[in-house]
């Protein structure tokens, strides 16, 4: 059953298991991504679950053995890998959600050819000495607020 870390499992047979996840710990999105990631080695079903937990049923595929994969993944090993990848997918989701606005801005700036999204460098470029004694021919002036780019 679901433990304190939001994760628990039951091994149903040599090749199948039921994983219980706490959706307050792992987002549904991360869980779905992790499930999808493992569809090459397992059949994965997500039955309708009560609100406080999400159930993932796993059945390891019994594929023909290959040189690199001489035998199917043991179910315990699968659960360990699944658990680790859940953390990774949760992190990825966090990165995406935290950086989505800045990413959109970068892309918009990158492909905006008009320059309207570019801003002036920060700070004031006026020279206070020149401002105080406006006598020389060349003056370093701050651009007027309404000046066109």
């Amino acid at each position: 059953m679901s433990g304190a870390d939001g994760f628990g499992f039951e091994i149903d047979s040599e090749t199948s298991a039921t994983i219980h996840l706490n959706p307050r710990v792992y987002s549904k999105e991360a869980i779905l991504r992790a499930c999808y990631w493992f569809t090459d080695v397992a059949y994965i079903r997500i039955p309708e679950s009560p609100e406080d937990r999400l159930v993932v049923r796993v059945e390891i595929k019994q594929t023909a053995p290959t040189l690199a994969n001489p035998k199917p993944t043991p179910v315990r090993e699968f659960i360990g890998e699944f658990c680790n990848s859940l953390l990774d997918f949760e992190l990825r989701r966090q990165v995406e959600s935290e950086t989505a606005p800045v990413r959109q801005l970068i892309l918009a700036k990158a492909f905006s050819e008009s320059g309207v999204l570019e801003s002036d460098p920060p700070g004031v470029v006026a020279d206070p000495v020149e401002s105080a004694r406006p006598s020389s021919l060349v003056q370093i002036m701050s651009p007027a607020p309404s000046s066109p780019k």
């Binding site: 053995p65 040189l67 994969n69």
Partner: peptide, 8 residues
Amino acid sequence: RLSGIDPL
């Protein structure tokens, strides 16, 4: 079959 070449 993405890994290995032929079934053993």
